[in-house]
Design a binder for these strands. Structure first.
Lengths: 296, 296
DNA sequence: TTGTCCAATATCGAATTAGGATTGATTGAT
DNA sequence: ATCAATCAATCCTAATTCGATATTGGACAA
């Protein structure tokens, strides 16, 4: 059975006239009769009761007409859906991000992306850098927003999305808070609050390395996995913490922020699968780049 | 677009391998590639991401696979439905009947027909003989169970389904109730309760004519459209009524039934559209004939 | 009876589809 | 690093299917 036969049958059933139906289909009448006949033979029952003078639907034909119409309509929908997904106007996009990105580009990017593509379902979730890369590789995530550096991987595509200064979160009344800007080496001996190394090993080692290069022996007194926890610990006077500039938006009482001169900028990169040609993915990454406030 | 392309696409999407899919479809690999390519061109987007070594579904392809599978399944269902309707194992049968038939063959016939064909929806409704014939002609009813005689009509097919004696419904204590059987001419001068002529003109005139032939001047004191009303009026002593024998099942207090010798038998005929070749219709009529208790 | 209309049939030509051989490219094994 | 194997695409030819023209046979109306 072929769709042609369904289309022909629908035309005849609607016109109840082979010649008019043939004209509507832009074919001649004989092949129309043949195709209808073939369809009926394959089904094993007559769909059209044709006397020499009149064409009528049999009960089976009436039911099949309803079903054939529905199938043809669904075919159109299916084709439109496929095209929409291909064009990035429909489908599902799964985005993961590090917690600190929630304070910078994630809300605006997602909001504008959703507005621009109402047919697209955007699933967002926070994960650590390493978990994101694993999820990306296994295919359960489409876009990962992580802190570089990360290990080069030919299966992954990386694009810088945001760069911002690293600042220091300092307990209120702490001696460093009296400075307008804190030189990196002044962190020497200071108790530090930091995210666990495994959460973002690359950035962790970069930061520690830079500290060591200025002669500072890092003295981490507390590891905390969440940015809000880190700031909370700082507010409690546990120690000082180098954080991305956008974290200053967390204006908790008991915490002050100062530029941390000499510290490496923190970047946020979008990582995607190299083989993933999805229009959604590239569109989302492009949207994220647009929002770049270029650090503080 | 053709169903062939959908079938081919589903095979490739399931195998993720052109050669294996081609083997499953019993064709060679080149035409498979061609048809997939044609499908993609018509849709305007790629469904399968094929490197030289691996075949994968694109997001659009995954969505289209789901839809294509659904459509192919629906096609099978539609074909089965059409066949079932054609075989009389599915569909809708609309049966109308005169009220008195509800006391004889209708319940058993409908019950056995439903049991034999669980997929068929049987709609039953009571109507007068003339209303039934009108409904039959306009196509809103498939089978009419009426009391003959009816006007011959080449567009209608008539089949006798049941024949039963006409009996007399008599008020309790009425002089006629002392007889074992009531000769028709004894209805002379008796007040009669009868159905309205318009409800079944043929049978009405036949009955009145037979009464007149025996020298009786019919004396109808009350017309009642429903059989239960007629019997109720008899029970109330309003008059005597000639009724089909099966009405004796209505054993209301105050009513007695006696054979009415000389009265014409009442028949019940199934009327269908002559052009209606539906398997359901003929099966139902055949079922009704089987139940024939051949009168009392 | 004749003319008209309609679907079916027959036959031929055109388009589509399938098959075989081959290519180009990639991967895995030696 | 080389070679063999694998796989989809491409080219070309053959077979099948599909469509068009002409015609037939039947039904209805004038």
């Amino acid at each position: 059975m072929e769709l042609r036969q369904l289309r022909y049958f629908v035309a005849v059933a609607e016109e109840l006239h082979f010649r008019r139906a043939a004209a509507r289909l832009h074919i001649s009448q004989p092949p129309l009769s043949q195709q209808i006949r073939a369809l009926e033979e394959e089904l094993g029952c007559t769909l059209l009761a044709r006397t020499r003078r009149r064409v009528e639907l049999t009960p089976a034909g009436a039911a099949f007409l309803r079903d054939a119409r529905a199938m043809l309509a669904e075919l159109d929908v299916a084709a439109s859906t496929a095209r929409a997904i291909d064009a990035g106007q429909a489908g599902v996009l799964r985005v993961n991000f590090v917690g600190s990105a929630l304070l910078s580009i994630v809300p605006g990017t997602v909001q504008r992306f959703r507005r621009a593509r109402p047919g697209v379902e955007v699933e967002v979730r926070e994960r650590s850098t390493v978990e994101q890369l694993r999820a990306l590789g296994s295919g359960v995530v489409d876009v990962a927003l992580v802190r570089p550096p990360i290990e080069p991987d030919p299966a992954l595509r990386t694009e810088m999305v945001m760069r911002e200064r690293t600042i220091a979160a300092i307990p209120e009344g702490h001696p460093l808070a009296r400075l307008r800007r804190v030189p990196l080496r002044r962190l020497a001996g200071e108790p530090l609050v930091l995210f666990p190394r495994l959460q973002a090993p690359g950035y962790h080692d970069l930061l520690i390395g830079r500290l060591a290069a200025t002669g500072v022996t890092p003295h981490v007194v507390q590891y905390a996995p969440e940015m809000l926890t880190i700031i909370g610990l700082v507010a409690a006077g546990i120690g000082v913490s180098p954080v991305p500039a956008s974290v200053a938006a967390l204006a908790l009482p008991g915490v002050e922020y100062r530029p941390l001169s000499g510290a490496p900028d923190t970047e946020l990169v979008a990582v995607t699968r190299a083989e993933d040609e999805s229009a959604l993915v590239s569109a989302f990454v492009a949207e994220a780049r647009l929002e770049n406030p270029a650090g503080s």
